[in-house]
Simulated scan of single mutants.
Amino acid sequence: MEFSEKNCDTTDSNEPILYENTDANSVNVALIESKKMEEIDKDEEHYEPLRLDSKPRHKGTLCNLQEDALKRLKSVIYIVSALIFVLYIAVIVLIISVVMTNSRAIASAFSVDKPLNHSSFNGTSKVIFAHMIYQHGIDFNSSTGTFTCSIPGTYHFSVTLVKKRASSGVFYCGLYKNVSYIITIGDPTDDDTNLRGAATSQSTLIHLDKGDTVYLGSCNEQPSSYMEPFSSFTGFLLYSDN
C-alpha cells in the first residue's frame, strides 16, 4: 500500500499526514482477487473431473463385479444340475441292472408238450415229452422228463392231459416230488364208451429245496397211445427263499 506526504497548513502541528493512495490500492486488490480466482478455477478444473469421473467408474466396477458373480453362480448351478442329472441316470441304470441280474438269477421256468412215452429212470416211471415249448434256465431235463430244483423256493406246477378221441378207458398220471406222490391227473369221465375225448388239468404249489425233483409219472397207459400231442406239463418259480 502506497502513501503520499502532504503538508497541511495548520497551526496545531507541522508533522506530515499520510493519506491512502486509493487508486493504487484498488489496482492491487483487483490483482490479488484475480489471482485468487485463477487459483480457484485451477483447483476446480483439477478436482471436478476427478469427482465426476469417480462416480461412473465406481458404478461400472460394481456392475462388472455383480455380472461376474452372476455368471459364476449360473455356471455353478449348471454344473451342479448336470452332476445331479448324471447321478440320477446312474442310479436308474444301477437299479435296472440289479433288478435284471436278480431276475435272471432267480428265474426258473419250463413248459413242454407232446407226451412221447412212459419210461423208467432209476426205478421210477416218468413221462417223456417230445417238444420243449419254453425253458428259462436248465432245470428241466427233457431227456428224463425231470425238473431238478436249483433255486430253493415256492414253485407252481400244472399238468393238462387231453385224451385221444379214439381211445377208450380211463387214464391217469401222478405228479411227484422226489418219490412222494403230490396229486393225480386223471380222466374226468368214468364211461369207457366215451370216444369224444376228454381233457383234465390240475395245478399245485410246491416248496422245493435245492436238488429236489418233480416229474409226471406212474401213468396207467403209454402216454402216446391215449394222450393228444397238446397235453402239457408246466412249472415255474413263484418266489425264492432268499
Results as ranks from 00 to 15, higher is better:
residue 4 S to D: 10
residue 9 D to F: 11
residue 13 S to D: 09
residue 14 N to E: 06
residue 17 I to C: 08
residue 20 E to N: 13
residue 22 T to M: 10
residue 25 N to S: 11
residue 26 S to E: 15
residue 27 V to M: 14
residue 27 V to Y: 13
residue 29 V to M: 13
residue 29 V to C: 12
residue 30 A to S: 15
residue 36 K to G: 05
residue 42 K to Y: 06
residue 46 H to V: 08
residue 47 Y to F: 15
residue 50 L to W: 03
residue 52 L to H: 06
residue 55 K to S: 11
residue 55 K to D: 08
residue 58 H to I: 08
residue 70 L to W: 11
residue 78 Y to N: 11
residue 79 I to K: 09
residue 79 I to G: 03
residue 79 I to H: 06
residue 79 I to W: 05
residue 81 S to T: 15
residue 82 A to M: 12
residue 85 F to M: 14
residue 85 F to D: 07
residue 86 V to N: 02
residue 89 I to Y: 02
residue 89 I to R: 02
residue 89 I to S: 02
residue 93 V to P: 00
residue 94 L to E: 09
residue 102 N to F: 07
residue 108 S to W: 00
residue 111 S to T: 04
residue 112 V to T: 01
residue 115 P to D: 05
residue 117 N to P: 01
residue 117 N to R: 05
residue 118 H to P: 00
residue 119 S to D: 07
residue 122 N to K: 05
residue 122 N to T: 05
residue 125 S to Q: 12
residue 126 K to C: 03
residue 128 I to T: 03
residue 129 F to N: 00
residue 130 A to W: 01
residue 132 M to C: 06
residue 137 G to C: 03
residue 137 G to W: 00
residue 141 N to W: 02
residue 142 S to W: 02
residue 144 T to G: 00
residue 148 T to G: 08
residue 148 T to F: 06
residue 151 I to Y: 00
residue 152 P to V: 04
residue 154 T to N: 07
residue 154 T to Y: 04
residue 156 H to Q: 09
residue 156 H to D: 04
residue 169 G to E: 09
residue 169 G to K: 10
residue 169 G to L: 10
residue 172 Y to L: 12
residue 175 L to D: 01
residue 179 V to E: 05
residue 179 V to K: 04
residue 184 T to G: 09
residue 189 T to F: 13
residue 192 D to R: 14
residue 193 T to Q: 14
residue 194 N to W: 15
residue 196 R to W: 06
residue 197 G to E: 08
residue 204 T to G: 06
residue 210 K to D: 08
residue 213 T to Q: 09
residue 215 Y to K: 03
residue 220 N to E: 00
residue 222 Q to I: 06
residue 225 S to F: 12
residue 225 S to G: 13
residue 227 M to E: 02
residue 229 P to R: 06
residue 236 F to R: 07
residue 236 F to I: 09
residue 239 Y to S: 08
residue 241 D to F: 03
residue 242 N to S: 14
